[in-house]
Nucleic acid binder design. Structure first.
Length: 472
DNA sequence: TCTGGGGTCCTAGGACCC
DNA sequence: TCTGGGGTCCTAGGACCC
């Protein structure tokens, strides 16, 4: 017997695209310096330590992601290669432009990283998404100068995989777009059988090796794997990956970034540090940087962790990697209070007799300003709670370079005045560059600062460093 | 001589409580 | 002689990402 009501077919789930720039940092540099074209180029990590971006020519020389620079210096020199320090002001600004153009191709966009963006195509049923992807690619190149790859699939994981094919596979590399929805199941199976399992988003080398031990070496084999068994032997994350490979969407598009859980600021030193005084300067500098980021995002921290470490690549030297956690007596975004707390943590963990190579701070227990109860005893604490970590009364040892008087005045002043001082300080540093006005505790000479000897100009964010066009 | 930095999530195990 | 069990919270460690 037929029922009177036939439910309408469920709408087809919306497909995803993943767009990302090729060799992003290198491509940013090439936009402004034609001499970098058609030769090996690498961009180095902080401290000019490792290669974190490589041009195709550099990859062809066998230079690996994350490879120490000193290992490839000669090889690069022999091949007319160029190594550049990373220029984050430039990359962040280029990223902003890139994301704006990509966002013109769907109202649903997730900015996933500095050079990657997901799009979702809800209600694009009648569109030729492959052509849409080609137009995106052409417009990004025209408007920003950056080459991108486009992968399209039924889930985020499949879109990521398609993006990989778009960049690597000869069938797609020319157009730079791979749309899995265009392929028959048999064609798709052919490509997936040729891809290694650790080409899948979320599967690194460790799990790749473990999967291989269990006879799962290719993407096609992982796609056919038993989900429950994967969940038991690995975890729920990998089980979701298997579902996603089968077109069942488990990872939603995150258009608004989830609330941040922590802010980390740390650096390796340009040269080893042995004294508490110098370590203290470095930690103060990282704390000030983390605090500025905290305010920029409208957050307060309830906890600060300080850590330091010796050089793990020198195992013959005594190793020490301590950390200390200091709770704030109430949440704050005030640099002076955080500096005081960080200093307490550092004094606690510091031991003589080690060559420190790195230090940093983590801000935790983050909450939006206003979401947490204010300090009931703020006014009284200047005199009333000296001795407790982070009380205002103990903070006034800290001045500021270039604004010493103001900083000290504000330190003892009302909460409103202290807040205003920090706003002014942040404004100056945003306008004139980080460190223009800084706290005395951060040090004047800063001999521990990282190496950065190969920086390109901040072509798009600094008036003094704009590229100049010369005729003739 | 020379080896980055900033994030997230999951799980296991211990502490603690009733 | 004999010593529970379940729940929650926290942390450390391990995995992943770019």
């Amino acid at each position: 017997m037929a029922l009177g009501f036939v439910p309408p077919p469920a709408p087809a789930p919306a497909p995803f695209a993943l767009v990302d720039a090729n060799n992003f940092y290198v491509s940013c540099e090439r936009v402004f310096d034609f001499r970098l074209h058609a030769r090996p180029v690498v961009v180095l990590s902080n401290n000019d330590g490792c290669c974190v971006a490589r041009s195709e020519e550099a990859k062809a020389l066998g230079i690996r992601m994350g490879q120490p620079f000193f290992e490839v210096r000669d090889l690069l020199a022999q091949n007319r290669g160029v190594a550049l320090s990373s220029n984050y002001s430039l990359y962040a600004d280029m990223s902003r432009r890139l994301m704006a153009v990509i966002g013109q191709f769907s109202p649903e966009q997730e900015i996933y990283s500095i050079d990657e963006s997901f799009l979702r195509f809800t209600g694009f049923g009648h569109w030729d998404l492959t052509a849409h992807g080609r137009e995106l690619r052409a417009r990004v190149l025209r408007w920003t100068g950056l080459p991108v790859g486009v992968g399209i699939g039924a889930t985020k994981t499949l879109a990521k995989l398609a993006n990989r094919l778009a960049k690597k596979h000869p069938d797609f590399r020319e157009v730079g777009v791979c749309n899995l929805l265009d392929l028959s199941p048999a064609q798709q199976a052919g490509y997936f059988a040729a891809l290694a399992v650790d080409d899948v988003w979320g599967i690194g080398s460790r799990w790749g090796a473990r999967l291989q031990q269990r006879g799962i070496a290719t993407v096609a084999e992982l796609q056919r794997a038993d989900v429950d068994q994967i969940q038991r032997q690995f975890n729920v994350v990998l089980a979701k990956t298997v579902l996603e490979l089968n077109g069942i969407s488990c990872l939603p598009l995150e258009e608004a970034p989830p609330p941040r859980q922590q802010i980390i600021a740390s650096r390796s030193f340009g040269q080893p540090v042995t004294t508490l005084a110098m370590l203290s300067e470095a930690v103060a500098s990282h704390t000030a940087r983390a605090a500025a980021k905290l305010r920029q995002e409208g957050l307060q921290a309830g906890l600060i962790q300080v850590f330091a470490g010796t050089n793990p690549f020198k195992p013959e030297a005594p190793q020490y990697h301590p950390g200390a956690t200091v709770p704030l007596s109430w949440p704050t975004a005030n640099t002076t209070r955080l500096l005081k707390a960080a200093r307490v943590g550092l004094r606690h963990l510091f031991r003589e007799g080690y060559e420190y190579k790195r230090a940093g701070v983590v801000l935790l227990d983050l909450a939006p300003v206003g979401a947490v109860t204010g300090d009931l005893f703020a006014a009284a604490s200047v005199v009333g709670t000296v001795g407790t970590i982070g009380t205002i009364g103990a903070v006034c040892e800290v001045g500021a370079v270039g604004a010493v008087g103001a900083a000290n005045a504000a330190c003892a002043a009302s909460p409103e005045r202290r807040e205003r001082l920090l706003t002014v300080l942040d404004g100056i540093n945003t306008r004139w560059g980080r460190g223009t006005v800084r706290f005395l505790a951060e040090g004047l000479v800063q001999p521990w600062q990282m190496k950065r000897q190969r920086m390109s100009p901040r072509y798009t964010t600094c008036w003094a460093e704009l590229p100049v066009a010369v005729s003739g």
